[in-house]
Amino acid sequence: MELNEALFQFCLRRGDDTHVLSHRLGEWCGHGPVLEEDMALTNRALDLLGQARNYLQYAGQVEGKGRSEDDLAYLRNERGYVNCKLVEQPNGDYAHTIAKCFLFDAWHLPFLKAQLDSKDEQLAAIAGKAVKEATYHLRHSSEWMVRFGDGTEESHQRAQQALHDLWTFTGELFETDEVYTTLQQAGIVPDLGPIKEAFDRTVNEVLAEATLKRPEDEFMASGGRKGQHTEHLGHMLGEMQFLQRAHPGAQW
């Protein structure tokens, strides 16, 4: 695989991961369990959206066909989206939202830290800004996992259920394929081994403090990176892309 094509695909994956999770968090706006959390989720949605814009702008540049961040976000179909399935899962209750964020953050932060050393300057620069945000995100989601696990019986059960429901989507975070190995050989993306170790460490420590059980690694879902998603993504895109699709070529 050509390096440039692999780099384009990788930027789309990161752009879609961050954009789709940001979109889900934006759905909470005005409906959070307490005003401070409404703000925290919006803040996180904004950080992720900023990262998504960086990746998608860069993707357009790497591709060299003049596609803008909006062309890539609003005019690709469901089969063209390459985010992991974890981030597209519906919000569910607050425990589901927090557990989804926690599992994402536990992978995202060590990934970004390693991306700081990327031989691709642009990716290293994006990571430089995103690391600070992801550090705060992981702290926020870890604290809530502990509150839920070590809170009331109800919150404990809800958090345990959320982990159980979402665990199957964590395998995809550590998949490699031709895109990934091409970039890894060029020193552009990191070895996933140490990132998986860091993920395991964070998950084990936080869940132990929260008195929650780590689900068994059974069947792991896959397909997101090939554009094969759960049914939820299509509905999200239908809503997200509505204005751009209804008014082709209009400026906003």
Partner: peptide, 11 residues
């Protein structure tokens, strides 16, 4: 929010 017409407008 979920229907904002561009990423900039959404931000």
């Amino acid at each position: 929010i979920s229907r904002a017409p561009s990423l900039r407008r959404k931000a």
